[in-house]
């Protein structure tokens, strides 16, 4: 993603509005953040984050687009929903983290974060889902680890053998019967998402 593409996204929207618009599922309440810090205090992986969710929301309000999208914070969100049930303003925090992940991927920012491998894990996971309709652990682990952590592939191989020995891993992916139907649905969904719920809107 280059500066030109980024500039072409310039719109009268604030960054906050952009984040909210890209988060489906009703009112996110993001603009109601009180900066109380309950989210960060509840976060089990918070100590590895560059910014607590509270900080990140203040940065969103301040329009610090680059800093927010470069932050490793969304990638360290484990989707445990602790912050979400404790937030006094009922902000859809976990969903906003997902939105920030999508924005960071789309604009290429994540490559500068300390969690640069994370998007590829998600991409590889869904690649199997899109091709077979089911997840495929062996394929996911092999493809992802050989690409990103070849040195630890031996350790992973031991783990995989343990899984196989216990009959806990398939050697081959399972394909659903009506994969064509699923693919038609997903293709249509991606087509539709160009206009809404995705960062930047129509491109």
């Amino acid at each position: 993603m280059n500066a030109l593409t980024r500039a072409s996204r310039a719109s009268p929207q604030t960054f906050m509005q952009e984040v909210v618009a890209a988060t489906p599922g009703g009112d996110t309440h993001l603009e109601l953040c009180l900066q109380c810090g309950t989210c960060g205090g509840s976060c089990p992986s918070g100590r590895d984050m560059e910014h607590t969710p509270r900080q990140l929301f203040a940065m969103i309000a301040a329009g610090m687009r680059d800093e927010v999208l470069k932050s490793n914070t969304p990638w360290y969100c484990v989707s445990c929903y602790y912050c979400m049930v404790r937030c006094p303003q009922e902000i859809h925090i976990t969903d906003i983290m997902y939105t920030l992940k999508r924005m960071a991927i789309k604009e290429g920012y994540y490559q500068e974060s300390t969690a640069a491998d994370a998007p590829d894990f998600s991409e590889t996971f869904i690649d199997f889902v899109e091709n077979y309709g089911r997840s495929f652990e062996l394929g996911l682990a092999t493809r992802y680890h050989l690409k990103h952590h070849p040195l630890s592939a031996i350790k992973m191989a031991g783990f995989g053998l343990g899984m196989l020995a216990r009959g806990r891993m398939d050697l081959r992916p399972t394909k659903i019967q009506n994969i064509d139907q699923l693919q038609a649905i997903l293709t249509k969904a991606k087509e539709l998402s160009n206009g809404s719920f995705e960062p930047g809107g129509a491109s």
């Binding site: 890209a22 998007p119 869904i126 995705e198």
Partner: peptide, 10 residues
């Protein structure tokens, strides 16, 4: 926890 990180609507 993967698909929502790539494409929400899908």
């Amino acid at each position: 926890t993967e698909y929502f990180a790539i494409n929400a609507l899908a």
